[in-house]
Design a protein around this nucleic acid. Sequence first.
RNA 1: GCCCGGGUGGCGGAAUUGGUAGACGCGCAGGACUUAAAAUCCUGUUUUCGCAAGAAAGUGCGGGUUCGAGUCCCGCCCCGGGUACCA
Length: 804
Amino acid sequence: MKNYNALQVEKKWKKEWKESGLYEIDLKEKKRKKFYNLIMFPYPSGDKLHIGHWYNYAPADSYARYMRMQGYNVFEPMGFDSFGLPAENYAIKTGIHPKESTEKNIEYMRKQLSEIGAMYDWNKEVVTSSPEYYKWTQWVFLQLYKNGLAYKKNSPVNWCPDCKTVLANEQVQNGSCDRCGNDVAKKDLSQWFFKITDYADKLLDYSGLDWPEKTIAMQENWIGKSYGCNIDFRLEDGEDILTTYTTRADTIYSVTFLCIAPEHPLVDELTKGTKYEAEVKKVRSEIDKQTLIERTSEGGANKLGCFLGKYAINPMNGEKVPVYMANFVLMYGTGVVMADAHDQRDFEFARKYDIPLKFVISEDGNPIDPADFEGAFVNDGILFDSGDFSGMHNREALPKMMDAIEGQGFGEKTVNFKLRDWLVSRQRYWGAPIPMVNCKKCGEVPVPEEDLPVTLPDDADFTLSDDGKSPLERSEGFMKCACPECGGEALREPDTMDTFVCSSWYFLRYPSSTLEDKPFDKKLTNKWLPVDMYIGGPEHACMHLLYARFINMVLHDLGFINFKEPFKRLVHQGMVTKDGAKMSKSKGNVVSPDEFVNKYGSDVFRMYLMFMGPFTEGGDWNDKGITGIARFVERFWKMINTDYDAVESMNDLKRNLHKLIKKVTEDIEVFHFNTAIAAMMEFTNFALKNGVDGASKKILVQLIAPLAPHLAEECWEVLEHGKSVVDSVWPRFDKKLAQDTTIKIGVQVNGKVRGEIKIMKDASEAEALEAARKLSKVQKYLAEGEVVKEIYVPGKIVGFVVKS
RNA sequence: GCCCGGGUGGCGGAAUUGGUAGACGCGCAGGACUUAAAAUCCUGUUUUCGCAAGAAAGUGCGGGUUCGAGUCCCGCCCCGGGUACCA
């Protein structure tokens, strides 16, 4: 028997698979049930494919192979999310055109991806930066626009006054530009938005989705539906009304000031021409330098604001309270909050600016004084100094107080969402152009669908920006066009789309990737979607996964597709770090899979990644244990290639085999590849000693096929079972055979393990207790007192409670 | 800050609904084979005390519930992800 030559074997089968078209699937096939196994497609960065990608893609492919062996027609496509900021930044630095660097990266990554030996059907590849694809991204934009779901409004961006360019959040470090180091400001620009807020309630419906609970929790919190009320505070002088939003109307009697968001238009209105105007300007520019996180963080040092010179009247008790602009208030709800001692941020702000505070809730309803406290009293308790509501528990009082506020006409109960509309326009070059035209006569005009794509010009100067304009604005050939309505001179919309738009519908395109006259074939899409299994990182929980659901719902509501949700089952892989940090080029800790694949082969590398730990947990990369997998592969190969004249115990072999089938099947179903591999190892060690027959060998090769496809294919050939192992039928286990008849369970005395008994699996309580009492060690401990309780949990434990 | 995860031997990790903590693998130690080494195979390997039998402690920290807690409850600490222009 030869040693197993992984590299040679893998090369052979990759070639064979490609030539036979084993993984090119017929999407129109009717015989088998369909299974759409989707992986979040990669961004073709300069780092190329790293270990994190492999960690994601290899197990995902193992799952796809498993499903194919379960008899499904499995569709596993691959593509590239190839628009985006990094390519543009790289271009600005090096002068290499994004198109060029992106194509090069894709080319390289295709080669790397093929090393995995996955079942990708490359005939169905999509590349989001290709005109054939973004033509239809533009089509998606038009559908939203035509149905009132895309609109323009002013919105602030990070602005570097020196570079005269819009900065991504990532490019802002501690309030300064990461290119020139100067202070970053805010600037209002007219931007395109998608009305995702119209779908807030629909997006909160997760029924029928097999998603991780944590992902649903994160999305729910992100959408942030809250029930509260708007309360009107009339200004002391004049007619102006400040409408506050609160979920804590129970604290209305403790309000000692109001806070307005710096972005709120009323701030300027109230201070214009007053002595407070200058101070507002000064403080606001300070706030502009803060990130959202700094603005809303706890800790008094971050709090910034100023008095606006106005007072408002608390409608419930008629008290006069000062009005402040405050950094921690955002344009969420009404952009105005009533502030009091029962909120930590309000409390800190008040302490910093010497605003009086008072409590109205305490544990027992006895008055307490903020002067005695370091921070806010945020617990629930009994109300005091709260008019008719004094003495009530605050949570009980809350709905009654909201009723009272509404009944007296001081405000109304409302529902609020944290979710904001989706800002989709970018003042950048490397993206899909927004298919709109601005005509002096006709105004905002959509590009007719038959004129798509609006092609991204190659000649635009993207190296420098000025006044925050999109680089496309400097391409005359691009900008000038005829108005689709009046035919007169018009200018194109120079902004491009957020890359999240590209990735919010790509799963619809895969089955129809080569279709030229439509975004997707309706029949084919309705057949293949929703995606049965979607695998990708948890970092996408709130944005990509929400955007994709939203776009899918819109296209559903417009009648283009017949399914509401795009992803039936979702699984997140964990993150692979290096020395505890996310791999990134800037940290210089990116580990390439190539050297390991070249040394050990893709099967060993794939199994090592799966063996590292649970798929959903990720972990810190090190290559220490990879030899263990390499040894296992050798042992497996040896087991398959050894002819055993005699099998020592056929019964043990059968039982262990069926236990193994059960274990591997159940583990793959829930993505516990690590324990599936451990079980395979255990069995292999057993079989090498005990011997194994041909029928069992066949099953073992099938069991390892999803985990080590090349090895399995080679073994399958050795065993002469014909065609490909991936098209064989996944082995079934015999429930009876997969069970032990006798088991070992522990014996405890007062909760401490004092021995072990071997009994029949279904032994009676009396039998178990008797066996336990026979143990001399147990007897010793039982003799120390009187047995007051006997415990027998079948299959688990025998216990005695002894009192002395 | 807020939302969501995680913390178990020297290391990666295992452990249905609370029921013998440490499967499997790496590393390490000893042994076999070999002139020798590599490879392979065998044995051992949570810590402390002990020749051993055995005993005690032990799943980030501090409490609690329970005959029994890695698992449940309360209060902390640390690490990671997201925080709306990285994708």
